[in-house]
């Protein structure tokens, strides 16, 4: 465990907890894309199957449980909670996320490390995580203004993946056998997707103006 990875996990944890806190406290999910939250729940459900078969560490298991619990809670709040669901912007959150799931499934069947069910689902989750933020970014573009908690959520998610890239570089140089091309390329694509959001996020933060994303 290196500092980049720990910082990455903590940032990732913060992103989901910030979002869950927002939704729970102000009983609103305005600006939040349910599609992205459902995709993340699917990412965790297909990636953390090994929680029952391989024990890596207490930290690993606890974090997986927290991510599973928080992502499914967020989906439940937006779908089922009688107050929160009213603030869900169904008309604007129209990204057809099945168009993301199917290509990731096919790609996992084509490019993977081992042809086992667990490994295929794990690879699927890696590809899906890379594109899961798209419905949220599209929603932010449409709603123009974004309130700072949603902005923070996307920012923290981008920061977590950037820290993971530093972690992979660190591990590549310290553990020779550590080579995971699939994870590295998908992680890089994911971080690049955030790049333009980052640009506008820093611009607005620097000029101390409300974040405006260009249409």
């Amino acid at each position: 465990m290196n500092i980049f990875r720990l910082a990455g996990d903590m940032t990732h944890l913060a992103s989901v907890l910030v979002l869950l806190l927002k939704i729970h406290t102000i009983k609103s999910c305005a600006g939040v894309s349910l599609k992205t939250q459902e995709l993340y729940a699917l990412v965790f459900a297909t990636r953390y199957l090994d929680i029952f078969t391989d024990f890596i560490s207490v930290y690993n298991t606890v974090m997986k449980l927290i991510f599973l619990g928080s992502s499914f809670s967020i989906v439940w709040y937006i779908r089922r909670h009688k107050i929160v669901r009213r603030s869900y912007d169904k008309e604007q959150d129209t990204f057809r996320h099945y168009f993301l799931v199917l290509p990731c499934l096919l790609l996992a069947l084509l490019i993977h490390e081992k042809f086992t069910v667990k490994e295929l689902l794990w690879t699927f989750s890696i590809y899906l995580e890379a594109v899961a933020i798209l419905p949220q970014l599209v929603l932010l573009q449409r709603t123009r203004n974004i309130d700072n908690l949603t902005g923070q959520y996307v920012f923290l998610l981008g920061a977590y993946r950037s820290l993971y890239i530093l972690n992979w570089i660190y591990r590549y140089f310290t553990e020779r056998h550590f080579v995971h091309w699939i994870t590295w390329i998908a992680g890089l694509v994911q971080t690049l997707l955030y790049a333009d959001f980052f640009y506008y996020y820093f611009e607005s933060w620097k000029n101390n103006v409300k974040l405006q994303l260009p249409a």
Binding site: R5, D9, H12, D50, D54, I56, N60, M63, K64, F67, E113, K114, W122, Y164, N167, H177, F178, H180, T183
Partner: peptide, 10 residues
């Protein structure tokens, strides 16, 4: 012998 790489990251 290189053991199959388990995915130890989140």
């Amino acid at each position: 012998k290189q053991q199959p790489q388990i995915h130890d990251e989140l």
